[in-house]
């Protein structure tokens, strides 16, 4: 039997990796991928908690998270396409038009 804590540690580590990716990478696609990593980490911890409590709610939440992640990925990629058309670059630092 694997203690709950182990799963949580895995989830935390994955979350940190995803966060690091969002802040350190300068490619929009990679940033979106890192966000997906974070969402997955959260999914894992939800399922683990659900299993620990002995009900199915954790999986339900995961279901919804996945749906939302899909929608967000779709819209996000559409935006990336639009941005790429303007600047020919996927570097987030290239888009500073809203600077003061």
């Amino acid at each position: 039997m694997i203690p709950l804590g182990h799963y949580l540690v895995v989830s935390a580590v994955l979350f940190s990796i995803g966060t690091a990716g969002v802040f350190l990478r300068r490619n929009l696609i990679t940033i979106l991928l890192s966000i997906e990593i974070m969402l997955n980490a959260v999914n894992l911890s939800f399922v683990a908690f659900g299993r620990a409590q002995g009900n199915v709610d954790g999986q339900i939440i995961t279901f919804f998270v996945m749906t939302v992640a899909a929608a967000e990925a779709a819209v996000g990629l559409a935006i990336v396409i639009g941005l790429f058309r303007h600047r020919e670059s996927l570097n987030p630092d290239a888009f500073t038009l809203l600077k003061w």
């Binding site: 966060t19 802040f23 987030p92 630092d93 888009f95 500073t96 600077k99």
Partner: peptide, 17 residues
């Protein structure tokens, strides 16, 4: 306060963090 508006997405992400 207006210096917060850097226009850089990563700066905004930083403030989120």
């Amino acid at each position: 306060l207006r210096r917060l508006q850097t226009g850089s997405v990563r700066a905004y992400a930083g403030s989120l963090l």
